[in-house]
């Protein structure tokens, strides 16, 4: 499952980040590393980009990037 498929208001744990090297590096720098818990706070009014809460702050990424991030949904 990827971050793209996560519903608003759900949490998940990042499993793997793939894609262009520079982009992956940036996502890692921003703290989106495997094992981190993210919460999908909301989608922009036009559906894209999305807003995540992780490591205590808000980060916005596009759905295109979200598609290359695989996740494990958190057990409630």
């Amino acid at each position: 499952m990827t971050l793209f498929e996560l519903a608003v208001g759900e949490s998940a744990v990042i499993k793997e980040v793939s894609g262009e090297k520079k982009l992956v590096r940036r996502l890692f720098d921003m703290g989106l590393t495997p094992g981190v818990e993210v919460y999908l706070r909301k989608k922009a009014p036009l559906g894209d980009p999305i807003e995540l809460t992780l490591r205590g702050y808000e980060l916005s990424i596009r759905k295109a990037e979200a598609k290359s991030i695989s996740i494990e949904e958190e057990k409630q």
Partner: peptide, 9 residues
Amino acid sequence: PPFIMELPS
């Protein structure tokens, strides 16, 4: 360009 941006409080 990619849109990886912090949304400050």
